[in-house]
Design a protein around this nucleic acid. Sequence first.
DNA 1: CTTATCTGCGTAGACCATACGCAGAAGCTA
DNA 2: TAGCTTCTGCGTATGGTCTACGCAGATAAG
Lengths: 252, 252
Amino acid sequence: MSDGSDVELPENVALAWGLRERPSRGPKRGLSLEQVVAAGIQVAQSEGLGAVSMSRVAGELGAATMSLYRYVPTKHDLLDLMVDTAYGPPPPPRAPDEGWRPALTRWAEGNLTALRRQPWMRHVPISGPPINPNQVRWLEYGLTALAGTGLRGTERVSTIMLVSGYARSWATTTADLMEAAVRSGQTPDQVGLHYWQHLARLTADGPYPAIHELIAEGDDEDDYADAEWRFGLGRVLDGVEVMIQTRTAGGR
Amino acid sequence: MSDGSDVELPENVALAWGLRERPSRGPKRGLSLEQVVAAGIQVAQSEGLGAVSMSRVAGELGAATMSLYRYVPTKHDLLDLMVDTAYGPPPPPRAPDEGWRPALTRWAEGNLTALRRQPWMRHVPISGPPINPNQVRWLEYGLTALAGTGLRGTERVSTIMLVSGYARSWATTTADLMEAAVRSGQTPDQVGLHYWQHLARLTADGPYPAIHELIAEGDDEDDYADAEWRFGLGRVLDGVEVMIQTRTAGGR
DNA sequence: CTTATCTGCGTAGACCATACGCAGAAGCTA
DNA sequence: TAGCTTCTGCGTATGGTCTACGCAGATAAG
């Protein structure tokens, strides 16, 4: 019956997958987990993650603070749930006749889009490997993009982590810049300009030749941001391609 | 005298670069910024970032909570300063006769080592582009590794960001796993095993062929962690190499 | 010696997460 | 139908958090 390898699911995971059947004894619940999560997302979206407190979220629902703890074990679990549903489902998976590269590109851009639409998500620390429903769906589609490439299992996983890590860090940096701009009432361009000015001044008297060369070279692109994203992603995928080609060619 | 393009440095940056001369009027200071930062690091290192509160750090120094605000404008600025000094200086820069790839590899591994030595750093959210002294030094050496490769300025910056982002996200995931293990009194291997077991159970009845294939393939490496790190880094650098070679060969 | 300025720091305000326990609602069992 | 069990929302309380404000005393300039 039980083979001993069974370890019961952590509470938060069971919750995320909807595996907690409501008991039939007591009074009916006035709220639902989905409502609580949605209210949390709404607060985060409109006022930032910092505004997400148990009492603020409860207020949004017309409930008392402590009521939320009937739906969620801990605030951090609520945040995890919020991230999972705010991320939403992944973009369409690789089509039968599609190459791995366009599929993985779409997957990466989906990551970026999700993070851009809900920028507060970048401030929720990653609590572990992907285990919640949407996270798992994203993982599935990411792996699907790499099926049949000859990459080993761990390599496929590493590649997915590599790409999503890139999307996250890129989204983070640009969103930080954007928010700094809004805070100071400037355009992002101005903020970027000030950054380089400050950097130039601070490094002026020190041994920073590479930075000076960089500054001297100047930098006035139009579609700067998007080009930079594409560049990084292109490098990552080129690297993956190199490996795939050696696998496909060399056989072994 | 002033050409109008001058924008004064933000307070926290000036502080980080030691550009705030102490005024000569009042009584002598009982502490120094360095001491405050060091105390913060010590608390973070021994009890985790969560234990770093103004009162805890002040206690470490035998001072009152509010005294710290004579040295640091805000708690978040303290955290930024802590990260900058805990990161420490970068590893040796690219030697004259050294290729870009070993130099950048060393740089990436330096990132990883720093993050591993002080794992609490991963929980301090990145507050903007690198502007504090050690951050700038790391940037300098990273760019140095790419000097003379034919890469444009923005491309060099993107590459650096790509590599450091990879190091950060990889360090984060492994440290999370490690801490989860410690918390539950298991070995990291056991935690990893449980993860795959849970994932298998949760996806058992759903449309997750790629995940099932991954699980079926099994995964029992010895030096698993390190191999995975090297794989991702290798992919990134291969991608960079592709671009450098087209630049070097094709001219324009 | 006066005066300006800076120091450490006590107090207080406005939050926060969450442990505990209670009154009442809902269903199960007899 | 009665009683028991279990579950509900949520009030209260504990023990934190950051930091604004302002005061008493120290220091040095004029």
